[in-house]
């Protein structure tokens, strides 16, 4: 049980690190939002693992994960609509070109 817990915590940490790496290094806005979603998935996995008991996952942890999922979906919706707006304005989703083409 303890080994399993450590394994899951390690996996969620790797997921969060991968998402941060994606946000820091990628230049496409859609890829950056994918990185944010990977971070959200890692956080959800961490919450569920923290609520893991011998008789299943605690209901409170499941409830918090549900809220976290809703927030993740809302973040994705708003971010993607901003990306569409940026594309309408600049004609690209590459952050380098957006930086160059100022208002």
């Amino acid at each position: 049980m303890n080994d399993l817990l450590q394994l899951y915590i390690l996996a969620s940490t790797i997921l969060i690190a991968l998402g941060l790496y994606c946000i820091a290094t990628k230049r496409d806005l859609i890829k950056i939002v994918l990185g944010i979603e990977i971070i959200t998935s890692g956080v959800n996995l961490n919450i569920i693992v923290m609520g893991l008991r011998s008789n299943g996952v605690e209901a409170l942890a499941q409830s918090i994960t549900l809220i976290s999922m809703t927030i993740g979906a809302c973040i994705a919706a708003v971010a993607l609509s901003i990306i569409i707006n940026v594309f309408r304005h600049y004609g690209t989703t590459d952050t380098r070109e957006i930086k160059r083409l100022k208002w």
């Binding site: 998935s41 299943g56 996952v57 499941q62 999922m69």
Partner: peptide, 18 residues
């Protein structure tokens, strides 16, 4: 892990809606 409702919501929200 024993969280079937979260599994269903994960499929519906992340693999579906997003």
């Amino acid at each position: 892990l024993g969280a079937p409702y979260i599994a269903v919501f994960q499929l519906a929200i992340y693999a579906g809606a997003i």
